[in-house]
Amino acid sequence: MLRDISLEVAEGEYVSLVGPSGSGKTTLLSLIGGLDHPQSGQILVGGHDLRTLSGDGLAAFRRETVGFVFQHFGLLEALTARENVELALTLAGVSSARQRHHRASGLLHRVGLGDRLEHRPTELSGGERQRVAIARAIANSPRVILADEPTGDLDDNTAADVGDLLEQLREEEGCTLVVVTHHRRLAARAERSLTLEAGDLIETRGGER
């Protein structure tokens, strides 16, 4: 699906990736995030050569280096908002329950959900769920946040709020943000916008191809 792609993203940069459905945007994001393996080529993220990683190594890369935000939010319905954020900390090896609780609560306050800590995903609106997912994505202070259609299931106003939040957190955390989106307004907020079309990656704004 993806052939002869070359992409370099600077640390702390905000890049949007647009393109028609089926063009390979999500595949590219999966490759960058270590969810998928390339058949050939090289992927370097934060100093990690993903070709050399597998199994536990890839799992460690995913929990320490990247934070994912999904269109479908990806929250575990059996857990509360706080527990969903805590789960990322648990997987990262934070053994102190008190520490996890404190950090998760702080993050949810930060994304404006201080009064929804003990609500389950089914009791939250779409925008609130995505905020929980964003809090979870930054829980382990990743170097890269990868967002796959983060506003795809949200109305325009809520989408704008989520866009604001992602941008704000990127600035505060100093991490790289790569957003796959169909949402023109969200794409327009990025420092650099790339279009994936017929297997080609075209720089449509900022930087160079």
Binding site: L35, A59, R62, F70
Partner: peptide, 16 residues
Amino acid sequence: RREIGVLKAIGARDRD
């Protein structure tokens, strides 16, 4: 399936 995928995406190992 998706939930398991998310667990792995946020760092869960196979044995977890």
